[in-house]
Write a protein that binds this DNA or RNA. Structure first.
Length: 733
DNA sequence: AGCACGCCGACT
DNA sequence: GTCGGCGTGCTC
């Protein structure tokens, strides 16, 4: 019998929407999920992932190149994850190679063996611990290294040792030779605590929710709608506990900012199991180590942000998505997937239950509840029987604000301080003032690369663009008319902080925004100061609202709630409501009632009515009716083709071509809009435009997109602009 | 994305 | 006479 020629299909790291065929290595066909080194182009070798094998190729055999090397004995990506990634590449119409790469930790994207992916560290040995430090007095470098390692149970990497001494290697050599220090791989799984916290008692709603989730052995989506402070996390923990007891693993996804040490500690102190934490703040080695422990089944719980949804978990038993409505689940560049939606698909494919938790669920999820697709679990009560905070609207049309703070708000802050409680103020705008303005000729300092105004940062005396990062000095004279009367218009957090300091000279004020928390760990230390009672007033942007509890905050003020009230984006209302509910949740605890004051120029807006009643379901039902009438998601499916070009008309011109190519594709049940400039047409020197495609049904939309993209890829005009397709876009700009 | 090939301007 | 500008095309 003649042997059948075999072909290996490989997803290569290139923006190509297909796999490449290679001849197998002499060792035989590598299995799907295995990394291979393959030649690509002229003299270049890349690492790709095997997606399958075949008996024939559409490329003539003579032109096929052979796999250069096989990097993994066992598939690095197991079949379950490979299937999920293939689905995701198809659904988001994104190049398969880039999708595969995004699923791998950075350390494993190259040809490093999986066994050596962690951080290599120097760690103290038992012998080293017993050394009498006085005996090292004559070798200060060795002494410093040894005492540093004594404090670091996990050991130190070369990068970290450099900070102790540039010449650390010399001293380390001697310490290793003496047997006091050894080189090993850093263990990324924190030690299991000796004493575990006992689980608190559940209220009836929590117990019902836990019971419902645990009753489901197969795939089922649960929407856990729990008001702030109602104990959603405890429901997760109980469900996880039961899953762990059966020897299975749990995947927990949280929004980017919410993965705080506090949350991690809460998980660690409850379970006597290894927990892998995966987020962007880790070193590449730590990420790879956590990922590999999950894949090996060593980590029983994976707690991570968006990209953790692709972590291999051989014994997956449950998925939890916390704050499922949060926008940070959607990746905003490159492979634009939704971590939440992929999680639901993963649960379905793996046949496990998934819990989506939120105080303000997305309209998409609530709609699935209405349709009977998701099970609805409600936690209506705050733990400890605390009342929800009283919510008042301040009609700014009738109140004379002083530096954007109305009199009732100032008064409430004063009373709050007198009670020795803390106040928290939100303003979604950092910097001192959003505009630098000439009162004589009307000139407004513009960004030279964006269609936007520059924001004044007074402390650093700079004008900055919040869209492209450009910055420059603050002109003293108007460049248009020479006037010397330039002034700041509007308010940012920096200005409000100053105003508060003048109004309440005794108060200790902490400002929290991207400018004050740029340094690593500074956000955490600011929060720690607040919790320790070393601050009276907190001023900040949205980042103040997520994942943190401040028991002594009893007043929350929203300084400008109007942004987004009349926005062009159809999701703006939903997001505003979610934000206000989230910040309101910061006010008050069991024994101290909270108060929320919202400043607005549109107090009659319907959104505030539902907000005052604290009725999210009512708001959501109304909003869903509006969406249904307008034909917006979740009653339709969207795809947005975006383009940007350095030349003014380039993006629109390309989209014009895309629009005409669309005529050649199956267009039944589709609405293909005309290309339009993006709401902020110029950004960072690039001209941007977009084209929206909409359909009532998913299938025709995706059939269309498939053909449309293959035509677009062939078009030479497509090489002159940067373009990307966003399936289920979160923002229409 | 990389990388080479390919024709037109200012330099040792 | 060459170095190099980025337009165009291809990668199994």
């Amino acid at each position: 019998m003649s042997e059948t020629p075999r072909i290996v299909q490989v997803a290569v790291p290139a923006p190509l929407r297909r796999t490449f065929d290679y001849l197998p290595p002499s060792s035989g066909d590598p299995r799907p999920g295995v990394r291979v080194r393959v030649p690509l182009g002229r003299g270049r070798a890349v690492v790709g992932v095997v997606t399958g094998t075949a008996t024939a190729s559409s490329v003539p055999t003579a032109r096929l190149k052979a796999v250069l090397g096989v990097l993994d004995e066992e598939p690095l990506l197991p079949p379950e994850v490979m299937d999920l990634l293939t689905w995701a590449a198809d659904y988001y119409h994104h190049p398969i190679g880039e999708v595969m790469q995004s699923a791998l930790p950075v350390r494993l994207r190259g040809d490093r063996p999986a066994s050596a992916a962690g951080d290599s560290v120097w760690a103290i040995t038992a012998a080293g611990r017993a050394v009498n430090e006085a005996s090292l007095n004559r070798t200060p470098l060795r002494l410093r290294l040894l005492s540093a390692l004594k404090k670091e149970e996990q050991g130190l990497t070369a990068d970290e040792l450099v900070r102790i001494s540039a010449r650390w290697q010399a001293g380390m050599k001697a310490l290793v030779a003496a047997g006091w220090v050894a080189r090993r791989e850093r263990d990324c799984l924190a030690p299991v605590p000796r004493t575990l916290l006992p689980p608190p008692a559940l209220n009836a709603a929590q117990a019902d929710a836990v019971r419902a989730v645990l009753a489901s052995r197969a795939f089922r989506v649960f929407l856990l709608h729990g008001v702030t402070g109602s104990g959603k996390t405890e429901v997760y923990l109980r469900a996880i506990e039961a899953v762990l007891a059966t020897g299975r693993q749990t995947l927990v996804l949280v929004p980017e900012i919410a993965l705080t040490p506090q949350l991690v500690d809460r998980f660690r102190s409850r379970f006597g199991v290894a927990i892998a934490v995966l987020h962007s703040g880790l070193s590449d080695g730590e990420r790879a180590c956590g990922w590999l422990s999950a894949r090996a089944g060593k980590a029983a719980i994976v707690l991570g942000t968006r990209s953790a949804v692709f972590t291999p978990l051989p014994r997956l038993g449950l998925i939890v998505v916390d704050e499922e409505h949060d926008g940070s689940y959607k990746q905003q560049d490159g492979f634009r997937y939704s971590g939440r939606d992929v999680a639901v698909m993963r649960a379905r494919r793996s046949g496990v239950p998934i819990v989506l938790g939120s105080a303000t669920p997305s309209l998409e999820s609530l709609y699935q509840v209405q349709r009977g697709r998701y099970a609805y679990l409600s936690l209506p009560d705050r733990a400890g029987a605390a009342n929800p905070p009283a919510l008042d609207l301040l009609d700014m049309r009738r109140l004379a604000p002083d530096e954007s703070l109305s009199r009732p708000l100032r008064q409430a802050i004063g009373e709050c301080l007198a009670r020795r409680e803390q106040a928290m103020l939100f303003l979604n705008r950092r910097g001192f003032a959003p505009v630098w303005f000439c009162p004589d000729c009307g000139w407004l300092a513009p960004c030279s690369r964006c269609d936007a105004r520059l924001t004044l940062h007074r402390a650093s005396a700079r004008l900055r663009c919040h869209h492209c990062g450009a910055e420059g000095p603050v002109p003293k004279h108007c460049p248009a008319c020479g006037s010397e009367r330039l002034r700041a218009l509007g308010e940012g957090t920096e200005r409000v902080e100053g105003a508060l300091q003048r109004m309440f000279p005794e108060a200790r004020i902490v400002r929290i925004d991207r400018d004050t928390t740029r340094r690593k760990g500074s956000l955490e230390s600011a929060f720690a100061r607040v919790r320790a009672g070393e601050a009276d007033i907190l001023v900040g942007t949205q980042m103040l609202a997520k994942g943190h509890d401040f028991p002594n905050v009893t007043l929350v003020g929203v300084i400008n709630a109007d942004q987004g009230l009349y926005s062009v984006d159809f999701r703006a209302g939903e997001r505003l409501f979610q934000q206000i509910v989230q910040v309101s949740g910061r006010a008050g605890r069991a024994e101290k009632p909270g108060r929320v004051l919202i400043q607005t120029y549109h107090p009659d807006h319907g959104l505030f009515g539902a907000l005052r009643l604290g009725d999210y379901r009512q708001f959501a039902d109304d909003a869903l009716l509006e969406r249904r009438e307008a034909g917006y998601p979740p009653f339709s499916f969207l795809a947005l083709l975006r383009a940007e070009s350095s030349s003014p008309g380039g993006a629109l011109k390309f989209l014009g071509l895309a629009r005409s190519l669309a005529e050649r594709c199956p267009r039944a049940e589709l609405e293909i809009m005309d290309p339009v400039p993006s709401p902020m047409e110029r950004r960072a020197g690039r001209h941007r435009a977009q084209l929206l495609v909409q359909s009532r049904r998913r299938a025709p939309l995706h059939a269309f997109l498939r053909e449309w993209l293959s035509l677009l890829e062939e078009a030479r005009e497509a090489r002159r602009v940067r373009w990307s397709l966003d399936v289920d876009p979160a923002d229409l700009y």
